[in-house]
Design a binder for these strands. Structure first.
Lengths: 232, 232
DNA sequence: GGACACAAAATTGTATACAATTCGACTTGG
DNA sequence: CCAAGTCGAATTGTATACAATTTTGTGTCC
């Protein structure tokens, strides 16, 4: 038996599966923004060599979930308020239009899937696992992008949702995420009704709500980069 | 002296510099879509180990310039007509808005830079180096995204422009790219005048022009994926 | 006690060795 | 002659060894 923590992985972890696992942990706020990700530790945890870990970290850096600096290694990204604004502005540009397309294309099974997502999310909240609820609520958005059948844009949205998770970890100021439930429910209704206009509007206002539920005063920006400079 | 072709690189190539060099070659149509990229060959050419090459290829795969399939290696991407449509639809969604922002923010030095780009492009055409002209005309678009000061969206546009280069290699049907010159010139004028509406409209119609200058009949898609399946 | 210098430890970067897989040519039996 | 199978070369996947760099700790001098 090696020193490896042997975390019950049947299959010999690939860089993709590791990237996925890390991504999930970050989404669910189990790893905080700014956390240093040391290659040796991860290699030990997943029972693979650093080669594979490096590939996984590189993957994550491409979706901006981790930042890699030469000779300094990888850390979980810690977006500035500027980046936070940009991410939500990009979402406000892409997602309403995508919701419109989704409304025109959504099948009954698509709707069913979205409803399942919502109930999973609700269950996670009941089980007081807000991290998982947040992750699922992100999946809801990427799922809609998938329904819209625009792979390219869906890919962009996926990375924006991922980054949003970090942003929420850093700047969220409301306690309850229940507002979400309402918005998502209304959206699914609009999709089911094939009401493209409503879907677009609902998505837009949902995103504006999220954006404005963040605490993004400029001074935070300085604090953050200071923390960056000191911690990492 | 090693067997390496030793292509006059002063600095010990990093994965980034190699990715950049390959990206340039692809942009300029010096490497055709579908071309197999063998790690050993590249390692030899750039005088580094496969480790570095693999990192570079992974970088390129994230911007969809190359496709990596497990145990099959990397090839230059060869977008289907469906992907081609998606890429241009995404551009039509992102870039007009971006041009609007750019118009509101462009400084005199920004305009100067764009004009320099245009004259470089013209020079490349004069020197009958259409590949380079195409590359520069892509840079023009990413430059505008940069001016708009939306790093996130600019990043998306950059990858879309890169992929467009592949799409043009595969599906371009007009001979002269002179239409471009006109459109770009008008755009710069709008930016210089801080005419946001005009910039947005000009960008939109420019992209629609490009899109419609492609030969994207469905049957091509089949041909392509067939070729894909056989060649690679 | 604090600033500096320098050595030791930790960590990342790169090359290389070897294992696993795919691809192609050849053989062989029908 | 063709189909299927098989061996070998080519290529990719992964682990490991070592070099380069950063970080940390320690001692010295003022």
């Amino acid at each position: 038996m090696t020193r490896s923590t042997d975390s019950a992985l049947k299959r010999p972890a690939t860089s993709e599966s590791i990237a996925h696992a890390l991504s999930l942990a970050i989404h669910e706020h189990k790893i905080a923004p700014g956390t240093k990700l040391v290659e040796d530790e991860l290699a030990d945890i997943y029972g693979v060599s650093r080669t594979v870990i490096r590939a996984a970290l590189q993957n994550l850096s491409h979706v901006k979930l981790v930042v890699i600096r030469r000779n300094k290694g990888a850390s979980v990204a810690s977006p500035s308020t500027t980046e936070a604004h940009e991410v939500f502005e990009a979402r406000e540009l892409l997602e309403p239009r995508t919701a419109r397309s989704a409304a025109m294309r959504a099948t009954r099974s698509d709707i069913k899937r979205l409803e399942r997502h919502m109930s999973d999310e609700h269950a996670a909240l009941e089980a007081s696992d807000p991290g998982r609820a947040l992750y699922l609520s992100g999946l809801f958005h990427t799922e809609i992008a998938r329904i819209a059948n625009q792979t390219t844009i869906a890919g962009f949205i996926e990375t924006l949702v991922a980054r949003s998770s970090l942003i929420i970890a850093l700047y969220w100021r409301r306690e309850s995420a229940l507002c979400e439930k309402h918005a998502h429910h209304a959206l699914v209704q609009a999709l089911a009704d094939k009401n493209a206009d409503a879907a677009e509007d609902l998505m837009r206002s949902h995103l504006v709500d999220l954006h404005s539920a963040l605490y993004l005063r400029e001074r935070n920006d300085r604090t953050l980069s200071l923390k960056d400079a000191l911690t990492q």
